[in-house]
Design a protein around this nucleic acid. Structure first.
Lengths: 151, 151
DNA sequence: AAGAGTGGGTTACATGATGCAACCCACTCC
DNA sequence: GGAGTGGGTTGCATCATGTAACCCACTCTT
């Protein structure tokens, strides 16, 4: 049966999860953030099947994460570029990378180091509160229903 | 065929995606963060099939995100509690919620509002640089290979 | 001019993963 | 002794995936 659709649930995590709760989508956005734009490059870099890639790229374009741009005519060729919405998803990936760095790597150390060109330091992502700038901890966060809460 | 295993890739995003790139896992962690601990509660709150739930809980326990604790004998009953590793994944969910709030909701407003008890303000998550505390933007981040880079 | 790319897909097929519903079992409560 | 409760397992039909082969419109090489 079809995978459960959570995109309409009254929870922004569930809605995001409908798109981001798919490893190929996450990896495609990661690649796009790293500069990949062409069908064959995504395919070669991730080893994803071409049919699945077609399907995922279509979904991401549909959701407004990527745009399909013609970059050449005769023959017409397309490339996939991040939109603002897609670019804005990067912090989520950075947070996942930071978590993975803390919990998923062995003694060999991180495979990838992130460098922030703004401050010229190697860094990792930290998720903080928009109001007090303190790092978040589940135990200090409460969820209340908001105006858009319904079904 | 089996879904591609990315847990050994030399990229912390790919490794995290192997676990977090699954909507049920994300939603289970979310529920656990909200306080759910029992099999039947997870099942009822998410509407997930019982066989899938069994399988996912086993995986999460296996990965050290949850622990299966006996909370009663005669008959023996178990509950699932977040570990430190699991609790530490909350910021990722919070980042997803913040993104969802910006891009996935209609004019009706957010269904859920987060309240930070530390500073007593309603807030949203922001992902910043560990060194300069500025919000991250893909265009200012470069990835370099680190010590653990191999296959 | 024939043959080998290149870029971006589609098709077919075997096998895994899902959703759904029914069934189990060891208690406890009424 | 019949109805829960909590935590699962089993079976089945249908989807989604991985793999690999095939297409097509051009262009470049020999």
């Amino acid at each position: 049966m079809k995978r459960t659709d959570t995109s309409e649930w009254p929870c922004t995590i569930a809605r995001s999860a409908d798109l981001l709760g798919d490893h190929w989508n996450l990896l495609l956005i990661r690649q796009a953030c790293l500069g990949t734009r062409r069908f064959d490059d995504f395919q070669a870099e991730l080893g994803i099947g071409r049919n699945i890639l077609t399907q995922r790229l279509a979904r991401l374009v549909d959701e407004g994460i990527l745009t399909r741009v013609e970059y050449q005519q005769n023959p017409t060729r397309f490339e996939y570029r991040l939109t603002d919405k897609g670019r804005d998803a990067y912090p989520i990936l950075a947070a996942m990378a930071a978590w993975g760095e803390r919990w998923l790597i062995g003694p060999e150390g991180t495979p990838l180091v992130l460098h922030h060109t703004e401050c010229a330091h190697d860094m990792h992502a930290v998720v903080v509160c928009s109001e007090c700038a303190q790092p978040l901890d589940v135990r200090h966060v409460r969820a209340k229903t908001g105006p858009g809460f319904s079904s």
